[in-house]
């Protein structure tokens, strides 16, 4: 693919707190090609979370430009951003964010509701995706009946059910023990290597970042390091 998946140039994000302007992201430029496995690291307060929100189209740039799959994201309205997130970006959160008292198949089908997909079709696609993450036998379970690792798998299935252009994971192993962390990161790697899904993981843990093939480090709102390294495992 010639055009990069992500093309961010001179991205600034400033927050106004009272009279004071606080720059959280200060002139970051980054390009990511389709099929990459990228880790964004940095200590807390480094601006990596803010940058992730920008990447995920949850927030808008104060200045600069953001191209995603050739679309000029910085010019889109709130509603258009919502549609872009719905169709092209899959989110995985630290705290899973599954709907309680809801079956996992309905949890996974949730993004499809906002695409207007019919119920039977939603169920079918959700079941298929749960199969892929190894939970095909528990479709009718409720999310609170599952372990943390299984819940995160459900979240991954939900993120992928719309066949997005990018999987964006924010501290995906933050609530998991090391064994299940390894499983989840292994799942990401499989999805990346076998299905060619672009994965961006935001983390502050070096051993989690080590699963990625490209590492980007943040400090004080700026990109201080960008290297493609051999993976740790």
């Amino acid at each position: 693919m010639s055009a990069p998946l992500i093309d961010i140039r001179e991205a600034w994000k400033t927050y106004q707190v009272g009279e004071v302007l606080i720059p959280a992201v200060r002139g970051v430029s980054l390009t990511v090609s389709a099929g990459e496995f990228l880790a964004i690291t940095g200590p807390s307060g480094s601006g990596k979370s803010t940058f992730m929100h920008l990447l995920g189209c949850l927030d808008r740039l104060s200045s600069g430009s953001y191209g995603f799959e050739g679309r000029r994201v910085h010019e889109l309205s709130r509603r258009e951003l919502a549609r872009l997130r719905n169709q092209r970006i899959g989110f995985v959160f630290q705290s899973f964010n599954l709907l309680a008292r809801t079956t996992i198949v309905d949890n996974v089908a949730l993004p499809l509701i906002y695409q207007g997909v019919r119920r039977a079709e939603r169920r079918r696609r959700a079941a298929e995706m749960l199969e892929r993450v190894g939970l095909g036998d528990r479709l009718r379970h409720h999310s609170n009946q599952l372990s943390g690792g299984q819940q995160q798998r459900v979240a991954v299935a939900r993120a992928l059910v719309t066949r997005p252009g990018m999987l964006l994971a924010d501290e995906p192993t933050g609530n998991l023990d090391s064994k299940t962390s390894t499983e989840i990161m292994g799942l990401f790697r499989t999805l990346n290597e076998q299905d060619g899904i672009t994965v961006v993981v935001v983390t502050h843990e070096a051993d989690i970042a080590a699963y990625a093939r490209r590492h980007v480090a943040f400090r004080d709102g700026q990109l201080v390091q960008d290297r493609s390294g051999a993976s740790a495992a």
Binding site: L58, R79, R83, R85, N86, F93, L99, P111, Y114, Q115
Partner: peptide, 16 residues
């Protein structure tokens, strides 16, 4: 609130 946040993240706009 968190559920609303999640729904918005995965593509629900304010109107929905």
């Amino acid at each position: 609130t968190r559920e609303i946040g999640l729904r918005m993240a995965i593509g629900a706009d304010g109107a929905i």
